[in-house]
Design a protein around this nucleic acid. Structure first.
Length: 279
DNA sequence: GGCTTATCCTGGGCGC
DNA sequence: TGCGCCCAGGATAAGC
């Protein structure tokens, strides 16, 4: 499940491998992986463009072509963007295939087909073609502060776990790191978001940043599908405190980790370390 | 406007 | 061995 650390890791791998290279051919094997424009235009428009920069905003990968907005990718659940030698066999779930002038290739694979690609023409910006980009909240590792979080969560009655998954509040957090950050903050995921006190918001902000930073250092988290741009798995799952550990003992107090559904998402927590359901 | 729920999608795991 | 069911979850639409 690619979240901010996984997407950042993929971006770093792309930067190291494709800048200066040129797209020589495009093949779309699954039309609904291309969100914009139509498949025919997507294919013809990309050919001949040079990769000039790779950036990340939330969970979006934004690749500039010839210095202009160009190719955007959201990996969603199971998307993988891997740079590999040109003679490498196609992945079983290959959806979009880019041949590069250098002889290498980029394979976009996506088992569950939730991921999307956009071609953004020179006359447009990423934000005009992908409106949700403009609505994203602050980048947690650059602009997030306890004051910003306090303002965003003020008077919110929805539970804090659901609020953390809202990309308009904080960009880039998904199910894994929301659970981990709440555990390390000692905050129960079922607490109403608006009930968090200033000292808790300061702690939560610090732990969000610490968890994401550590996960990036570990190359992300691999539970099933994620790999970096070179096809290598992440390692953070071995360090997780609660996510994916339901039924196991808490690393801090030995209480059995619980799993409940919150907003339709699996939520993992320790009922001892995160006791405070309501204030 | 705020919030919850359903939907998309497909492979893997499990029970029978 | 094969079949059917359930689960995973990011983003968005629909409904309350």
């Amino acid at each position: 499940m690619p979240e901010l650390p996984e997407v950042e890791t993929v971006c770093r791998g792309l930067r190291a491998n494709i800048l200066g290279d040129t797209i020589a051919g495009v093949e779309v094997l699954r039309s609904d992986s291309v969100e914009y424009p139509d498949v025919k235009t997507f294919k013809s428009s990309l050919i001949g463009h040079e990769f000039s920069s790779v950036n990340r905003r939330g969970k979006y990968i934004l690749i500039s072509l010839n210095g202009q907005a160009g190719l955007a990718v959201h990996l969603r659940m199971s998307g993988r963007l891997i740079v590999m030698p040109g003679d490498k066999e196609p992945d079983r779930f290959l959806r979009v295939h880019l041949r590069l002038k250098s002889g290498r290739q980029i394979q976009y694979s996506d088992m569950r087909v939730f991921g999307r690609l956009w071609y953004v023409p020179e006359s447009e910006s990423f934000e005009t073609v992908i409106p949700t980009l403009a609505e994203l909240g602050p980048e947690p590792l650059e602009h997030l502060t306890a004051n910003i979080l306090q303002e965003s969560l003020k008077d919110r009655k929805q539970v804090i776990k659901t609020a953390l998954l809202d990309q308009r509040i904080i960009a880039g957090i998904g199910n894994i790191y929301a659970d981990e950050a709440l555990f390390l903050s000692g905050i129960n995921p079922l607490r109403p978001a608006g009930s968090l006190k200033k000292n808790e918001l300061i702690k939560l902000t610090e732990t969000i940043q610490a968890v994401l930073t550590r996960a990036i250092e570990a190359g992300g988290t691999t539970f099933s599908d994620y790999t970096n741009a070179e096809g290598v798995n992440g390692r953070y799952q071995h360090e997780a405190f609660v996510y994916g550990r339901d039924g196991e003992k808490c690393r801090v107090c030995a209480t059995v980790i619980e799993r409940v559904k919150v907003g339709g998402r699996s939520t993992h927590f320790c009922s001892t370390c995160q006791k405070n359901k309501r204030l």
